[in-house]
Design a protein around this nucleic acid. Sequence first.
DNA 1: TTTAACATACCATCTGGACGGTACACTTTC
DNA 2: GAAAGTGTACCGTCCAGATGGTATGTTAAA
Lengths: 178, 178
Amino acid sequence: MGKISRKVDILHAASKVVSEKGIFNLTLDATAKEAGISKGGLLYHYPSKEALVQGMVEHLANNYREKISNNAESDPVDKGKWVRAYVDVTFNQAYQNKDMHYGLLAAKAVSSNSLDPIRELYSDWQYKIEDDGIDPIKATIIRLATDGIWLSELFDIYHIEKDKKKAVYEKLREWANE
Amino acid sequence: MGKISRKVDILHAASKVVSEKGIFNLTLDATAKEAGISKGGLLYHYPSKEALVQGMVEHLANNYREKISNNAESDPVDKGKWVRAYVDVTFNQAYQNKDMHYGLLAAKAVSSNSLDPIRELYSDWQYKIEDDGIDPIKATIIRLATDGIWLSELFDIYHIEKDKKKAVYEKLREWANE
DNA sequence: TTTAACATACCATCTGGACGGTACACTTTC
DNA sequence: GAAAGTGTACCGTCCAGATGGTATGTTAAA
């Protein structure tokens, strides 16, 4: 897209490779080709495959963190705002560049440390969600159900239908207000 | 363990490799070594890497299907029995040979078709859960939350604490009775 | 003219899997 | 009942191809 950040373009290219061809085909060659540069050019920006995957995870984590923060902070009601933000962003906003989730798949494959930024995010959210003014177990369940949707979709084991997804979304939102 | 089924031993060995060393190190050599046989011997039982992974997924799917069926059929109360069976088995029984879940990770990496047995299971359960005598959306949420736990654990992005897990379990069971 | 942003050529290593054997338990044939 | 044949369960070696990464250009902007 923009010429400003070729690095982000490369990240998108890598995600596309993973989503279309699987983790085993996330090679430097394939990523470079998808990004329209040579392998040398790719290695200039990301000096190793691990660095590339790290970049994917960090980009995803930063985007996600920012979106949820914005959402929670602009919520007029205090009680349950983090739970609502989590549900809202995951259901409605994160799916636009859903391909970026594939960075997690790659990270899980490459090395265990690569997932650290996401783990940190999660433990942070869990803390906020449990202190959100609603029953913490209920809040946790709402969060887990939300995770269940995107994880099973990322994993490709279960794709929920649009209508059902909307109904689930509405019920979860309802619970986040009680 | 038993000498009866070397094939199952091999499957366990492969799962162990994935869980300990990651998907990229699931090689025929590593699996053979872990199983205590040679590569040639391994290839006798599973003629290709894809066949090995296929074996892992099928084994997991069969075990899971059987456990849930037994659980549901022995439930004295009809209403909500499939939802309860799903929650019960996933929380309390599937975690004994949790390592087998790593077959899914391997399958996702190797080829898209390898996951078919699990997809079939899932669509089957979804059907039963929606026709279980309780509100289908609520039933779906219970199921999604259950998935959220094991998927995020498998993915290694969020590990729920024991106490919290128990509390979640009890609340989900409670909802499955309403 | 220096430096950022690439491209090209090349190498060392790893991996799947094909293949030729081996050991041994059955079974059939004579 | 011994010899010959047959199927099962392995072992160890070899190799073509793919892959991550290095080393060394090249070009265009500042």
